[in-house]
Simulated assay, not measured.
Amino acid sequence: MYNFSTILLILFSVSFSSSEGKVYGRCEFARHLLKHGVPKWQIPTWTCIARHESEYDTTKINHNTGDHGILQISQLYWCSNNNQPGKACKKTCSKFRDNYIGDDIACAKKNLQ
């Protein structure tokens, strides 16, 4: 039988891990793109990019290139790889590795302007 401390630790671990990152399904990712203003005609391209770059995994880091998150935002130009928000998207790269992808989409859209 579990004691109260063990149950709390398990619940904390589950809730913490689910807020850290997520692997999206293709259709779920496409719905988020639409929700965040990506034109419908661009959805297949964005979906293809996310599939090949990160396999829809928000925690993905490419240590060779310094790219982060589901859309592989580059630390060279778009995010800072320290504790201070910076570069073109005014974010730390770690913000692109959590389960909220609205900021990833906004940054990627900025890339297109």
Rank of each mutant, 00 (worst) to 15 (best):
C27A: 06
C27E: 05
C27M: 04
E28A: 10
E28M: 01
F29K: 06
A30P: 05
A30D: 04
R31D: 15
R31H: 13
H32D: 13
L33K: 14
L33Q: 13
K35P: 07
K35Y: 13
H36E: 10
G37Y: 11
V38G: 05
P39D: 14
P39I: 09
K40E: 15
K40C: 13
Q42F: 00
Q42L: 03
I43R: 02
I43E: 02
P44V: 13
P44Y: 12
W46P: 01
W46I: 02
C48P: 00
C48E: 03
A50V: 04
A50Q: 03
R51I: 03
R51P: 01
H52Q: 08
H52C: 07
H52M: 06
E55S: 15
Y56W: 14
T58D: 08
T59N: 09
T59A: 09
K60T: 09
I61S: 03
N62Y: 03
N62K: 05
H63R: 14
N64F: 06
N64A: 11
G66K: 01
G66N: 00
D67P: 00
H68L: 08
H68Q: 09
G69K: 00
G69I: 00
I70L: 07
I70H: 06
I70S: 08
I70Y: 05
I73K: 01
I73R: 01
S74F: 07
Q75D: 08
L76D: 14
Y77R: 10
W78E: 05
W78V: 06
C79M: 07
C79D: 10
C79G: 07
C79R: 05
C79Y: 08
N81M: 02
N81W: 04
N82D: 15
N82F: 04
N82A: 02
N83D: 13
Q84I: 11
Q84H: 04
Q84C: 00
G86R: 12
K87G: 02
C89T: 08
K90V: 06
K91W: 10
T92E: 03
C93A: 02
S94F: 07
S94T: 11
K95F: 04
K95I: 00
K95C: 02
F96H: 00
R97Q: 15
R97H: 10
D98N: 14
D98P: 01
N99W: 03
D103L: 09
D103F: 03
D104L: 10
I105S: 08
A106S: 12
A106D: 07
C107I: 08
A108P: 12
A108Y: 15
K109F: 07
K109E: 10
K110P: 04
K110L: 15
K110A: 13
N111G: 12
N111C: 15
